[in-house]
C-alpha cells in the first residue's frame, strides 16, 4: 500500500493543481499574521481554523486529480479496502506537509511573540498546543475533502457544495452558544481552548470529539464510494 500512497502523492505534487490550495493557505496565513503578533498557542489555534477548509480542498484535489479509470486499476491491483485507505493516507501525508509549512510560516514573517506577562505560556508549551491544534484538524479536513471528492459525490458541483457547507458549517456551528456544536469538528473549540485555559481533560475531550467526527465522515465517504460502485 505504501507504493500506492507514494504514486498518488507524486501524481498530485507533479500537477500544477497542488499549488492552488498551498497558495490559498499562505495568503490566508499571511493575512492572519499580518494583523499583528500573537503568542504561539493563540496564533496557531486560529491558524488551524484557517487551515481546515484549505486542507479539505487540498484533499479533494488530491483525490480528484487521479483519473477514474486509474483509480479502478489500483483497486483491481490492491483491492477495494487498500485503494480507499491509500487515498486517505496520501491526503493525510499531503496535509501534514502543509501543516509543517503553516507551523514554520509565522516565525518567518514575525507573526508570533514570546511570553509578555508573567502568567503567559512558555514558547515550548505554546508550540505543543499549536501542534496539537493542527494535528486535530488534519483527520477532520481529510475526511471532509474525501466526502467532497468526485469518487464520492459524482458531479463536480456537489463536491464544491459539500466542501463549502463543511467549511462554513465548521465555523458557524462551532461558535460559542451553538445549539448543535457536535455536528461540526471542534476546530473553533480547539482555537478557544488553545488561547485560554487548556486543561488536560478538555484536550482529551476535544481530541476524541475530532476523531469521532472524522470517523463518522470517513464512514460516509466509504458508504458513498460503495454506492458509487
Amino acid at each position: 500500500m505504501t507504493a500506492l500512497v507514494r504514486l498518488r502523492l507524486v501524481g498530485f505534487l507533479r500537477t500544477g493543481r497542488a499549488l492552488a490550495p498551498l497558495l490559498a493557505g499562505l495568503v490566508a496565513l499571511g493575512t492572519l499574521y499580518g494583523g499583528g503578533r500573537a503568542q504561539p498557542a493563540e496564533a496557531y489555534g486560529v491558524s488551524a481554523v484557517v487551515l481546515f477548509p484549505v486542507l479539505a480542498w487540498q484533499t479533494k484535489i488530491l483525490l480528484d486529480v487521479e483519473p477514474d479509470v486509474q483509480r479502478r486499476l489500483a483497486q483491481v491491483t490492491v483491492g477495494v479496502a487498500r485503494e480507499r485507505a491509500a487515498g486517505l493516507l496520501a491526503a493525510g501525508v499531503a496535509a501534514l506537509l502543509t501543516v509543517a509549512v503553516a507551523l514554520v510560516f509565522p516565525w518567518l514573517v514575525g507573526g508570533v511573540t514570546g511570553p509578555v506577562d508573567p502568567g503567559d505560556r512558555s514558547v515550548p508549551a505554546g508550540l505543543a498546543l499549536g501542534l496539537w491544534a493542527h494535528l486535530l484538524v488534519v483527520p477532520a479536513a481529510v475526511a471532509l475533502g474525501a466526502l467532497a471528492s468526485r469518487a464520492s459525490v459524482g458531479g463536480a458541483g456537489y463536491g464544491v457544495a459539500v466542501l463549502a457547507l463543511g467549511g462554513v458549517g465548521a465555523v458557524v456551528l462551532g461558535l460559542n452558544g451553538s445549539a448543535v456544536p457536535w455536528l461540526a469538528p471542534p476546530i473553533m473549540a480547539t482555537a478557544r481552548t488553545a488561547a485560554g485555559d487548556a486543561a488536560a481533560l478538555t484536550l482529551l475531550g476535544l481530541t476524541l470529539w475530532a476523531l469521532a467526527w472524522s470517523a463518522a465522515v470517513v464512514g460516509g465517504y466509504l458508504w458513498r464510494r460503495r454506492a458509487q460502485g
Binding site: P67, V69, R72, L73
Partner: peptide, 9 residues
C-alpha cells in the same frame, strides 16, 4: 481498460 487513462503526470 478500453481506454487507458493517459492523463497522468
Amino acid at each position: 481498460p478500453e481506454r487507458f487513462p493517459a492523463d497522468q503526470p
